[in-house]
Each structure stands twice: as structure tokens, then as C-alpha cells.
Nucleic acid binder design. Structure first.
Lengths: 204, 204, 204, 204
DNA sequence: TATGAATGAGTCTTCATTCAT
DNA sequence: TATGAATGAAGACTCATTCAT
């Protein structure tokens, strides 16, 4: 049904098999029916866990969604950080960011659908603020790394909050359509095009 | 609470006051609580209409959401079409598209939040296919109009499905953040920046 | 099953038939199984009302219990007030109070069981304070009436909070046992004995 | 939080520390939330025992409540028996019974609340009949002892089942209110008053 | 004796929807 | 067209109890 590998899901936090099965089942249900329309019973059936076990591990449905969201973004962040490790020029950095985005989306289509569609699962949650701060820190760290690059000044001068939208907006907007099956061309075939666009947009 | 004007909501289809009040109340509820978490009772309370009346006019909750979604996009399309009427160069066209997007989002923030967040309200609906075709037609018409422009060939050669993401992806990605209050700079202050970016990305 | 008459239940507040059926069924269930062990399903079955109707009228199970409790005490208070209307001596007053207590308990055994057993249904409820004040007022009014009697000074001097326990404690303690089937003699056969005891305890 | 001493709880039956901790925690929970609303988890948390341990020692929640109830009454009975050992006149006996009641309630307020509120924990239990008989025996023994007193005939002639309610009803009715914080005067300040009342009621 | 993860039957409660007026 | 009381299916969630260690 889905190519979401359990190994993938496992990678960003210590989770036992039972928890991973629950997360995997939940992700699948959430994508196919939406969070609200997914019943605990559905997750139970697909995961093999008992209702009690699901509640034992996650507390309630919203927290499963929250876990899925947070771990998705964390896992992506990690991958991005790794890919930026060796980068020495601003051009390489842009290239890396775009490539990693596309690669992650292609490797984790359901997870990508989930984070694209459910930006608000953390809303009104105790974890909300904490996770916002974590995200802000990650962004800050990324920007700091870019600033340290020797050719950083090649980057177009823009309000800071615009950089990410400009850099990755086209990819994300395309990816949303592709993930919805609305687009003839696969995302990965367009990697070079998106990189070229980003370079033109951001480097003088 | 919201600056969504009822007049605005009214403009794309023949609707009486009662219906507009219902739509307005529903939009407000949907934004604040999500579609599923919004109960008919909430819409009843905010709109002043009775439960029976709501059902009389819209059939059920999903159809209210569907109406909101379709009319939102139609209303935007209309505005875009008007703004493109006088356009004579490709550069003006790009400028117009970006400007109209930003203007519409700023004029209809809740509506914008709604269409951004609820791309899937038409899913598994009889209206789905119909509306998809309508949207495709609109896109086609837009592209045809651009092709007819004398300096069309200035446009970078790209797979056709990439044009819209590249053109409007940065604005939309930024707008989502702005509508969520995650961004320091108001969208309208960045209009010129976004236009410059788009021109650089799309014109040779 | 129970001799609780619906007419009786109706007397202290404007209630429609449906509500009275629900209250009657609930009282019966509460007595036989306790409040917690009574399920809405049981009340539904016995009352003939639908689940939704029960919730429509009472909000939840606790509020049914609260209504039963408050209306029980109110109904008793009313009866007591009526019986004290014509009273001219302190002895008659004592006699009246004891008689009314016994009569009410005998006429409403299930209701009496309920108020004896469930003094705390209003605990941590918004109605708690309000009802406490109502009760205090009723008590105050009763005492004021007694004070106005010409032979009031025949009453033994005691801390005010002791009067009611001394006057009615024996009856209530006996009634609890009788209502539990633990006592050979019916409460009403002992009316004169209880009156004599009360007079001895409280006069000169 | 409560002045219920563990030593007190221990006195009527052989119980090890673990069991006493469980009983103490349970009593506290039962008083604050009621028996049904108390979860094993709450008792576990307050007692420090594990869920398994609680079940090992008591079988289930109802049996904890039953143990608490039975041991409470037994402990009180014991204390009463001791206090009646030296009694030689009917007046002293009445005095002793009232004093012991008040003393026990003051020394064990939570336990007193518990037995007052939960007369029916043994209902539909195998222990019910047994304990009823035990109680009846105790009452019989008490009455026999009183009958043996030289001035027994000073006691007013009343149906036998009335003696206890008349003797102790006022104290219990007052105590219920006092334990609920509804009364300005502490129970122990009224001991002499209650004794005087009882003597007047019961001795000719 | 002690532990606590796992189970799943059992309940409360919600809410979309209907329909008689 | 408008109303809102009544319905009951459906689901989230709890919690007593078990049992392998």
C-alpha cells in the first residue's frame, strides 16, 4: 500500500517495534483518510497493537499525529545537516538543500504528504512552543553555517525570512501537486531544473 | 475578529444574505477549529441561522466546505483574469500574477488560510473531477494568453508544470508562514522583492 | 418495581413527561445499582427516551443525579413548610417536623434512599454553592418561624447547629436502617415514639 | 493531609506495612474521589505499591473498600467494648457510648467519613451476610451487657430497634455535617450536650 | 511476593442528520 | 423556507485485571 519503510520511521528517535508499527499504521491511515476520519480502531487493526497498547504508548490520537509530525521534520533536518557537512560554497549549499528536499520527499512520500498537510497538528499543544523553538534554532544554525561560507556575499540581499521560501518554495509547491498525482513529471527528474532556478533567484 | 467581508464572499456566485452569513460563520469556525472539529451547532450559533436552515441551503457540512473552497478559488481566478486583461508584456504578466496573489491573500486572509489548508475538501466528492477540469481549463487559458504575448519567448524554457510553482511557489510558501503568524514582515511589503525574484527565475 | 410516583416527582419543578420519565428511570437505577454503576443505556432502556434525548435534557449523568437530589430536598422542604403553616406552639412544630419527615420518607422511599446516600452529588458542581445557600436560607426561615412562636422559650437552650440533629437525628438514623430493610418495625408505626423522644430532648 | 494514623488502621487485623500503605492510600482516594472514581492507578501512586502488589494483597478494588469498611467498624466496636468494660450504671453506659463515638470520629475522621458514606460496599458480596451477623452479635452482646446493669430498668421502654437511633442518631447526624465542614462547632465541644440529650431521651 | 506492560470490554458522549410543524 | 427537538450510530478513551518475568 505504502512504501514508507519502518526503518526510515525508526531513525529519528528511540522507538520500539510496537511503537513503530503503530506510527506506521497511523501514517498510512492519516494519509488515506485524514487524521479526524482515522479511528483508533483502524490504527489498531493495521498495527496489530491493542487499543490499550496504543493509548499506553501515545496517550491519544493527536499525540500520534504530533509524534509523526515532529519526527518527520527532525528526520529531514538530520538528513539536511548531514548533506551540508562537506559543503564549501554557497552554490553547493543551495544545490544540497534542494537535492535533500527532493530526495527526502521521494524517499518518504507519505511522510511528506503528512507534514505538508498537517502543519497544525501541534497547534494548542504543550509541545507547540518547544518545537517552534527547536525549529527556529535549526534554521538559525543553518543560516549561520551559510554565513560562514567564503562566498557568502554572492547571496542576493533579501529579508532573511524570504530566503527559505525563495529557495525551496518552487520545489514544495511542485511537490504538493506531484504528491497529489496532479503532475505529469516526477519530482526527481526536475532536480536540476529546480537547482538552476534557485541559483538564478538567489545568486546575483 | 476577521476582516473577511461578506461582500467579498458574495461576489462569485448568487447567494442570499442567509447563505452568506452561513458561509462566513463556517469559514471562521473552520479556520479556528478545523473542519471536522467545527460542529453544525457552532455554525448555527455564529450565523444566526437555524440548524434546519443550514441543511436546507447546503445539504451538509462537507458541502459548505466545498462551496467555500470552490468559490474562493473562483473568486481569485476572476480577479486574476481581470488583472491580466490589459497586460501586454510577459514581464507585466508575471508582475500581475504575483501582485494579484498577494493582494488577494491580504484581502482575504481567512479564505486564503482555508484554501491553503484544505486542498482536499473536494476529494471523493462528485464535484472533484468537475472542479479539477474547471481549474485545468483556467490554467490552460492563462497559458494561452501568455503564449500570445509578443515577447513570450523571453520566458525561460521549462516543463510546463513547473511554471506555476516557480512563479508563485515563493509567495505561497511565504504566505503560509505569514498567515500562521510565523513571519516578521508583512506579505505586501515584499511584493517588489517577489516580483524581482520571479523575473530573475523566469526570464532568460 | 418502585412505588415512586411520577406525579410526586413532578411536583417541585416544571418538567415535561419525557424529563419525568428519565428522572424516574434514573432514580430507580441509581437506587438499585448506585450512580456510577448505572449506565446511560440502562436509563435509556427504562425511560424509553433515546440517548440523545437524555443528553439533550440533562447534559450528563451527574446532572440527572443533581436534579434528583435538589428536587427531592426541595419537594420535602415545600411539604414541611406547608405542614408548619398552621402551627402555633413549639410542641406542634416539633410534632409537625417529625411527622412530615416520616411521611415524606414513607411516601418517597427511593427518593429518600437517594438523598440519604448521595449527599455529595453536588460536590464540585457549579450548583453546589447556590444550593447550599438555598438550604441555609430555608433553615434560617424555619428557625425564624419557630422563634416567633409564643412559647418559643420552652425550647432547651442549645448551640443552634445542634437543634436539627437532635430533633431529627433519631428518625433519620432509624430511617436509613429501615430503608435498608434492616429493621423489623416500619417507620410510621414509630411516629409517636419519635415525637415523644424529641419533645423530651428539646423542651424545658 | 489526613490525620489518619497508619497505626490506627493497623490495629484491628494482622496487616503488614505494605497492606497498610495500600489501605491508607485507598482510604484517602476514596474520601476525595469516591470509590468508583478512584482508580487502581491512583492507589498505586499514593501507596507506592505496584498494581500487581495491590491485586496480590486485596484481589480487587471492591475488596479494599470492604476491608476498610469492616476493619473500621470492628476497630470502633473494639474501642466501644473496652470503654464499656468498667461501666456499672446505665447512665455511665450511655455516657460511654456517646463519648466513644465522638472520640472515634475525631480520631479517625476519614475512616468515619468512609463508613458513613459507604454503608453499601458489602452489598452483594459474599462477606455481606457474615458481617451482618457479626454486627448483630455485637449489638446483642452490648444490649445483654446493658440488661445486666443493676439500674437497667431506668431505661425508657422502647422498641429495641429504636434504642441505637435514639441514643446515637443526634451525634451521627451532627457528625456527618461536621465531617462535611458544614457546621461551626467541633463535635468534641458538644460531647456533654449530646450526653445530656441522650440521658433525657432515654432515662425516664 | 513484586512488577508493570498489555489487553479489550465497556461507557460516556458527541453530533450529523431528519422531520413534523 | 424556517425551526429545533429527537435520534442513535459511532468513536475516543478508561481502567480493572491478568500474567510472564
Amino acid at each position: 500500500m505504502t512504501n514508507q519503510s519502518i526503518t526510515q520511521l525508526a531513525s529519528s528517535k528511540q522507538r520500539n517495534t510496537r511503537q513503530l508499527e503503530i506510527l506506521k499504521a497511523a501514517l498510512n491511515c492519516f494519509i488515506h483518510h485524514g487524521i479526524e476520519a482515522t479511528t483508533i480502531e483502524m490504527i489498531r487493526e493495521q498495527s496489530g497493537a491493542s487499543v490499550g497498547s496504543i493509548y499506553h504508548h501515545f496517550g491519544n490520537k493527536e499525540k500520534i499525529a504530533a509524534a509523526l509530525y515532529k519526527e518527520g521534520l527532525r528526520q529531514f533536518s538530520l538528513q539536511l545537516k548531514l548533506s551540508l557537512k562537506e559543503v564549501t560554497t554557497i552554490e553547493d549549499a543551495i544545490r544540497s538543500i534542494i537535492q535533500t528536499n527532493i530526495e527526502w520527499i521521494i524517499a518518504n512520500p507519505d511522510w511528506a504528504r503528512f507534514v505538508f498537510r498537517h502543519r497544525h497538528v501541534l497547534k494548542d499543544t504543550e509541545q507547540e512552543l518547544l518545537f517552534r523553538e527547536e525549529t527556529a534554532l535549526t534554521h538559525r544554525a543553518l543560516f549561520t553555517q551559510l554565513e560562514a561560507l567564503p562566498d557568502f556575499k554572492r547571496l542576493r540581499v533579501l529579508p532573511e525570512s524570504m530566503y527559505l521560501p525563495v529557495l525551496i518554495g518552487p520545489v514544495h509547491t511542485y511537490a504538493r501537486q506531484w504528491l497529489d498525482g496532479l503532475t505529469p513529471l516526477a519530482l526527481n527528474e526536475l532536480t536540476e531544473d529546480f537547482i538552476r532556478i534557485a541559483l538564478k533567484s538567489l545568486l546575483d
